[in-house]
């Protein structure tokens, strides 16, 4: 079961500010879902390997060639969606 404290920790890890109201609202809903997920405990998965990739592919590479396969962006394109920018840089908040 997720307690309010756990929710706060998840909120911190996921950088999601949660209001008191959010926490009240989310806790029972998340718990009912987690409760449901608990059904997987019934499944015997001993000696079962996890499937991370559904297709049995490996060794997919690109050659060390410039601008292949994805094309580069110009500085203007790169910055075109920046909410804040300065002198060709993206502008982020202060560190501390």
């Amino acid at each position: 079961m997720i307690a309010k404290k756990d929710l706060e920790h998840m909120g911190w890890l996921a950088r999601l500010e949660l209001s008191e109201e959010d926490k009240e609202k989310y806790t029972p809903r998340l718990n009912s879902v987690l409760d449901y997920f608990g059904e997987l405990d019934e499944v015997d998965t001993e000696d079962v390997e996890p499937t991370y990739h559904i297709l049995p592919m490996n060794n997919v590479f690109r050659d060390d060639e410039v601008n292949v396969p994805a094309k580069p962006l110009t500085q203007e394109e790169a910055l075109s969606n920046a909410p804040k920018k300065q002198d060709g840089f993206f502008k982020a908040p202060r560190m501390m």
Binding site: V60, F61, R62, D63, D64, N67, P69, A70, K71, P72, L73, T74, Q75, A78, L79, D87, G88, F89, F90
Partner: peptide, 25 residues
């Protein structure tokens, strides 16, 4: 200049995907 050698992949634009450079390995 800053941000003049970027593409959707290294800029982390939504939808871009990585592909491994063989020579790096």
């Amino acid at each position: 200049p800053p941000n003049s050698h970027v593409c959707p992949v290294c800029l982390g634009l939504p939808g871009a995907l990585p592909v491994i450079n063989k020579r790096a390995v």
